Amino acid sequence: MSGHIASLIQIICIAAIPLIFAITLHEAAHGWMASKLGDQTARIMGRVSLNPLRHIDPFGTVILPLLMLSFGGFIFGWAKPVPIAWQHLRHPRRDMALVGAAGPAANLLMALFWGIIAKASHLVFISPHTQDMLRSTALFIHLTSRFGIMINCVLLVINLIPIPPLDGSRIVSSILSPQLARKYDRFEAYGLWIFLGLLILLYFTNSMWIILGPINDLIQWIYQLLALPA
């Protein structure tokens, strides 16, 4: 038991910063894009901020990821949704897609950022001139960076699933006819249950590769792009 707790603490230390900032910057990106397109709601409410405390959802950002980490395997989470007044956007239908895409785009940039950090820390770690203490620090940074790549790829892919209120649904809604978009958006009230139902269905039909495959492909693309060791 003590070994499991020690291992869990190590994982939390590695995962905490990448996870919090992956979720925080994802939401801040929505607010930033909305402010650029005419809606200042998020900015007025202080949500266009890099301060994690403004975005953290106690369950989605802290409790759920901790539970998932403790059981191992798949890790996911969310922050408090950024308030968007769609009617304030200059071109609501087009801008809805841009605001929706801003979050996953932020995750892609963060995954690349963590990839660069992983590359640099790996070079420090393998250098024969690196002292032991610095090598230990480089290893910790490298492991943290690898988790940063992973969690941002997870958030990017999952948020592009077109189930309201995930970001992919905003993009789909913007290209549907207004009548179809209104009907489609009504599913948002049941979106969480639909998403959970989808995960359960995929799990029990051995079809999780439908989600995990694109995540793995994206991770591998970043590793190959930056020539990172597997």
Results as ranks from 00 to 15, higher is better:
D57G: 06
D57E: 14
D57L: 04
F59S: 02
G60W: 03
G60E: 01
T61M: 04
T61V: 03
V62L: 13
V62C: 06
I63F: 05
L64K: 05
L66H: 00
M68Q: 15
M68L: 15
S70Q: 00
F71I: 11
G72T: 09
G72K: 08
G73Y: 06
F74P: 01
F74A: 03
F74Y: 07
I75P: 01
F76R: 01
G77Y: 00
G77E: 00
G77P: 00
G77Q: 03
A79L: 04
A79D: 02
K80W: 02
K80S: 06
K80D: 10
K80P: 11
V82A: 08
P83S: 12
P83V: 13
A85D: 09
A85W: 06
Q87T: 13
Q87F: 08
Q87S: 13
H88M: 09
H88R: 15
H88A: 11
H91Q: 15
H91P: 01
H91Y: 12
D95C: 12
M96H: 10
M96P: 07
A97T: 09
A97G: 08
L98D: 04
L98V: 14
L98S: 01
V99P: 04
G100E: 07
A102C: 11
A102P: 10
G103P: 04
G103K: 08
P104Q: 15
P104C: 15
A106E: 08
L109M: 14
M110L: 15
M110Q: 13
A111P: 01
L112D: 07
L112S: 05
L112M: 13
L112A: 12
F113V: 11
F113W: 12
W114D: 00
G115K: 05
G115T: 09
I116Y: 10
I117D: 05
A118W: 09
A118D: 03
A118I: 07
A118M: 11
K119M: 11
A120M: 12
S121P: 00
H122V: 00
H122K: 10
H122L: 07
L123I: 08
V124L: 13
V124F: 12
